[in-house]
């Protein structure tokens, strides 16, 4: 017979076991943090605090969801935070100038999609490395955002308060939006040909193209989609903060989203990724920030902790891949 007698079986068993452990490890860390936090401070387990954490991570979750799909296809967009900054700035100015809610929402999400598409066009047709191209647009967008609000805080009063502070069935509306986005992305990645195309493109772009996948079109859609979700995240952020100020969105938000996706096990090289992992990554970062806040640790350390968590997760992911 032509079968490999010794190769595949044990190796598969090993990879399968490792994968379960990987997510289990993340879950265990989450549980540890929850236990640690509830012992150290009473405030942590209060309904108000937990709902607040969820409200805060919703924005990152929406950005990270689009990024998970994009990174699985081997893409990268570093300008999603800048996109959020521009979207919030534009939306805030439109509200301030008395435009209607629907027109504002439509215009800002259309703008965000366009920004994503521009990134996609540059990456797809000039073959500039996505990291470089989108880092450039990120810087550019941060500047544009400051320009739009003229470096001042622009308030939207209580417009969008229903989205930002409203609740349904006791849960913040923002959480419903985020959950819906995550669910849709998860379904796309698993049950649509488009989602599987993303895995194929991330795994080997040449093979994907030769197999009849329209790689250029798919990439444009993926970048545009990631941009649209950044726009949605921008609206969510604006609704929660009630104003667009210098520093809203930007690179800090971007890094948190990338960190969450990477912690969740999505490969930076493409070809691998899960929404569930991303959800865990988002929650982990949100909880760490919240706990450090409650323990009244300086915000400097909070930034340090995000960096440290990302570094550890990246090393763990690489080690795991090398062993598998």
């Amino acid at each position: 017979m032509t079968t490999t007698v010794v190769g595949p079986a044990p190796v598969t068993a090993v990879t399968k076991r490792r994968r379960t452990i990987a997510h289990a490890g993340l879950l265990a860390v989450l549980v540890l943090i929850v236990v640690f936090a509830s012992v150290r401070t009473d405030a942590f387990l209060s309904t108000n605090n937990l709902l607040n954490v969820l409200r805060q991570v919703s924005v990152v979750a929406v950005i990270a969801a689009g990024l998970t799909l994009l990174m699985t296809a081997g893409g990268m967009d570093f300008s999603l935070g800048g996109n959020v900054a521009v979207t919030t700035a534009v939306a805030a100015q439109m509200f301030a100038h008395g435009q209607s809610t629907w027109l504002t929402l439509l215009a800002s999400i259309a703008l965000a999609t366009t920004i994503g598409l521009v990134n996609g066009v540059v990456v797809t047709f000039t073959k500039v490395a996505p990291f470089v191209a989108t880092l450039a647009t990120a810087t550019l967008l941060d500047g544009v955002a400051l320009l739009i609000i003229n470096g001042l805080s622009v308030s939207i009063d209580d417009q969008l308060a229903g989205l930002g502070n409203g609740k349904t069935l006791g849960l913040p509306n923002l959480v419903f939006v985020a959950a819906l986005v995550l669910l849709v992305i998860a379904l796309i990645m698993r049950y649509t040909t488009f989602g599987r195309d993303a895995f194929a493109i991330g795994g080997n772009e040449d093979v994907a193209r030769l197999s009849g996948i329209n790689v250029a079109r798919d990439k444009l859609i993926l970048y545009g989609f990631a941009g649209a979700l950044a726009g949605l995240a921008g609206i969510m952020l604006l609704s929660r903060l009630g104003a667009s100020s210098p520093g809203t969105g930007g690179l800090q938000l971007q890094l948190t989203a990338v960190a969450a996706v990477v912690i969740g096990g999505t490969s930076l090289a493409g070809g691998k990724g899960t929404v569930f992992g991303t959800v865990l990554g988002v929650l982990l970062l949100g909880l760490v920030a919240n706990v450090l806040n409650l323990l009244q640790i300086s915000s400097y350390y909070q930034t340090i902790s995000v960096g440290a968590v990302l570094l550890i997760a990246a090393i763990a992911n690489t080690l795991q891949r090398r062993r598998a």
């Binding site: 079968t3 490999t4 190769g7 595949p8 079986a9 598969t12 068993a13």
Partner: peptide, 15 residues
Amino acid sequence: RVVTLAPNPPVGLLS
């Protein structure tokens, strides 16, 4: 006549 030991392994693991 594709022969695999595991039901549906990643193709990279085949001979």
